[in-house]
Design a binder for these strands. Sequence first.
DNA 1: TAGATCGGAATGAACGTTCATTCCTTTACA
DNA 2: TGTAAAGGAATGAACGTTCATTCCGATCTA
Lengths: 196, 196
Amino acid sequence: MKNSDKRKEIMQAALELIAEQGFHGAPMAMIAERAGVGAGTIYRYFESKDALIAEIFSELERTVVESLMQGYSVDRPLRDRFIHLSTWIIRYFVDHAIHFRFIEQYMNSPYGVCLRRERLLGEARDIDLFRHLLQEGIDRKALKDLPLALHFALAFGPILSLLRDHILGFLVLDDALIRKAVEACWDGVRRQDGPG
Amino acid sequence: MKNSDKRKEIMQAALELIAEQGFHGAPMAMIAERAGVGAGTIYRYFESKDALIAEIFSELERTVVESLMQGYSVDRPLRDRFIHLSTWIIRYFVDHAIHFRFIEQYMNSPYGVCLRRERLLGEARDIDLFRHLLQEGIDRKALKDLPLALHFALAFGPILSLLRDHILGFLVLDDALIRKAVEACWDGVRRQDGPG
DNA sequence: TAGATCGGAATGAACGTTCATTCCTTTACA
DNA sequence: TGTAAAGGAATGAACGTTCATTCCGATCTA
């Protein structure tokens, strides 16, 4: 096994275990076993468990954003972009449930809270497609006159809840349902004076 | 100190510590210290840490539902009831941030997942005000023709996101903002063919 | 080429720490 | 004085991390 393979094996094993069982259910010894390496070996590649987890998260974030960027066009009307982006976020996590579960675990841990604070209060970065989209909608008065954070909650809140429900098996998110859900989210954020 | 006082002290201490620090940051010794009792004493009142936590949750649930029941009238129009209930849920947790944080911790732990499964898939109970409300709206075609679970996500998802943001200090949920938020949620679930 | 030598990667038993829980002594009260 | 409550040190299990040792492929030497 090559070095980089071993590194990836460790990250994959940790990702799966943490997603399935939470941070508690993923001791280093178990991660090592699933990765097919010795417990000590992990420390040749990662300084600590925290560092391992942080690295998994950061790689995950890169992967997700990359995937969402594909097929996203700034030229389409605002509504189309909103529908498209929301749809693809849901589709991505339906197809990669493990990623969603890991990110949720991470975000509900002490690491994640600091991160969220930085993200929402800090400057917008190129990656924040959704944030730019909502801000543009507010500026152009296509969306309701509400603070950005509230629009985030209105658009993202239902998506998170839905994905949770889907992954726990409470409902099945097929394409038809995703479409209806995303359009309902749009109804939540858009101005109601005209139709659509 | 009376027996029942000691019991309450222990529950209150555990509630606060878990809400503030998560389950990790609340070892039994620390709970005991904050409650002003010995570590062993806790076990005179609760079989185990799990039992203590479960009991806190269950009492919390009772308290919250009781508070929400007040002033809820089945006679008002559907929209009014939706607005009223959502508003009070938000107000309650803005005023009792500790309760919200504890419930979030609990729901994101192994305990909580099983619970959610039972709740959403099981029979509706009297307590599930929101669930009855949404179901009635679906039946009477005031709400969009969507599965109950989706309506839940549309109505509850933003509320959860908002409360999280508020408690972390990302925004301030005053009455004006709560009103706008709740009305936007209504736009998400209601049928769009007529106004309001 | 065969064998010796080397160096870094890999290992997993051992360590120290943390924690829930137990146990035994002390205290309070009737 | 006898019984129940309270206390907190003791216990043992689980965990992250370390480190002395092993392993293995590359390199050197005769």
